[in-house]
Amino acid sequence: MDKKLSEMRYGEEGVVKSIEGDLRNKVAGMGIRVGKKIKMITKQPIKGPVVVLVDEYRTSLGLGIADKIIIEVRK
């Protein structure tokens, strides 16, 4: 099932399916790319940022950024 990264729930895991246009450049260096496994760690309330696990390290993305990343959810 496909979901926006911003819509994933705690503990959910998935694989990055697509990243919107100009954002790809911005997150490429941080290791977030199509085909990468990603796990949701936490979301802050009131439209706060998300924290995800990529390759055993943690990265935080604003909700607007997470909106532009589509994940194929596994679990």
Partner: peptide
């Protein structure tokens, strides 16, 4: 080294 893949990107 613990994040070698993305390090190689740069």
């Amino acid at each position: 080294a613990s994040k070698i893949e993305r390090g190689l990107y740069l």
